[in-house]
Write a protein that binds this DNA or RNA. Structure first.
Lengths: 239, 239
DNA sequence: AATCCCAAAAATGTTGACATTTTTTATGAT
DNA sequence: ATCATAAAAAATGTCAACATTTTTGGGATT
């Protein structure tokens, strides 16, 4: 029996682990999270503890903990005595996610207009500028998903409300990333979205919570409608 | 060595476990959840795995799972290599919780006005009637917390949005119950609240999402202000 | 008396084995 | 052939032991 070698190097290395030598369970959570978001683990497929443990060369203890965390992130659906399965993103579920996002993130925008520091607002402006630059350079009318996330994440953190922050970043955005990643189109933000980002940032800069909230609500509602139409078309074209 | 007897009877029996012979980990989650809500486990106190396992006569495996779940419920704060502690309800945190609740539950009210069945609306009316009756009988101007939760839970479930439902019922309401339970006053809903419940129910009955949303937003914002004033007074009186 | 350092103790992290339940598969009856 | 049933296989649930890290506490030094 070889002496136990804790700390297994995960196949997919998570990008964010600066100082805290995180536990194996946390690393597993990140590995599985990314595998689910990218579709490497198919929607509806089972997370077999036995197979995954063997595959990743870890024991089932930390693996079970990781699955519990994924459950809390809404990424897997767990049934006692039957195991966990990757969540399935039906059209209805995606629209529900966007309704929840609209409610939370519009409030986050209002709070950001109150609580963000000047430095943070400067940073927000820089992110929008970067998006504009990206759009020009790519000569297309779309910006990268990463750039879009950066803007929304900055704003959400600016709300300084840890409950809203947790609900959005830990439980809703993973699902949105998963949906976008696995959608046919890699493109995400349109030209309209860039304009809306500018308007929202301006409202925050003016310290106008109501305006920021309204703009954000419309921004997300519009995105929801775009998805709704696109998915309806896809379903229709399958006949 | 006695033969292992799985399925330990928990000290605090959870009320809701009809058919699914839930696992030990789930039972532990409910037991600890209630202990935290009631204050039996003090805010900021540590959940020592060793001691709790011994105390509840279970092994650390299921206990750790339960703690992971409590983490997802925002009831404990966990730091790797240091363990979990019961969340501390500072004034600022409570107000953040109410902001998140306002955003989510106002949307839930709007959706309930669209998605609730006639039978469900009838049930909602019955719950409000029960509150009115309770208020008369007790000859006071307050109704029980349970009665208040029943109304809000019915409405939230009526939204038919599982994301909002999960966020409110599994992550926010436990904290609100904890706060109310450990507050000096056992009384919760005022006479105003009853009137507001009637108005919200009426808006849903009329299938008016915007009105239901607005009424709910005010209902929760008012509750937030009441708490804010009361807590400010308490802090001030400690000087 | 205060501070630093190191060993002992206790707590958390991880593992492999055993218990129980669910799923699969083979067998037999209708 | 189809369905039901039961044994076998595999998966999930639980436990106790070991590994590693953090905390504790005593003693030496300043």
């Amino acid at each position: 029996m070889s002496q136990p070698s804790y700390r297994v190097d995960p196949g997919i290395q998570s990008l964010d682990m600066p100082s805290t030598t995180s536990s194996l369970a946390v690393e597993l959570t990140n590995t599985l999270r990314d595998a689910i978001i990218t579709g490497e683990m198919a929607q509806g497929s089972k997370l077999s503890e036995t197979k995954l443990a063997q595959q990743l060369d870890v024991s089932r203890g930390p693996l079970r903990e990781a699955i519990r965390r994924l459950e809390g992130m809404n990424l897997v659906h767990y049934i006692p005595q039957q195991g966990a399965r990757v969540v399935e993103l039906s059209v209805g579920f995606i629209l529900q996610i966007y309704d929840a996002r609209e409610a939370l993130e519009s409030k986050a925008a209002a709070l950001a207009a109150i609580n963000m520091s000047s430095q943070e607002i400067d940073e927000l402006n820089r992110l929008v500028d970067a998006q504009a630059k990206q759009m020009k350079e790519n000569s297309g009318s779309f910006v990268s998903a990463e750039s879009d996330y950066a803007f929304h994440e900055m704003l959400i953190r600016g709300s300084k409300n840890q409950v809203i922050e947790h609900a959005l970043l830990e439980e809703i955005y993973h699902l949105i990333k998963m949906f976008r990643y696995q959608s046919d189109t890699a493109r995400t933000s349109s030209n309209n979205a860039l304009i809306e980002h500018r308007q929202i940032t301006y409202a925050i800069e003016q310290r106008d919570p109501d305006l920021a909230e309204t703009m954000m609500r419309r921004h997300i509602a519009r995105a929801r409608e775009t998805i709704k139409k696109r998915l309806a078309r896809q379903v229709a074209s399958r006949t």
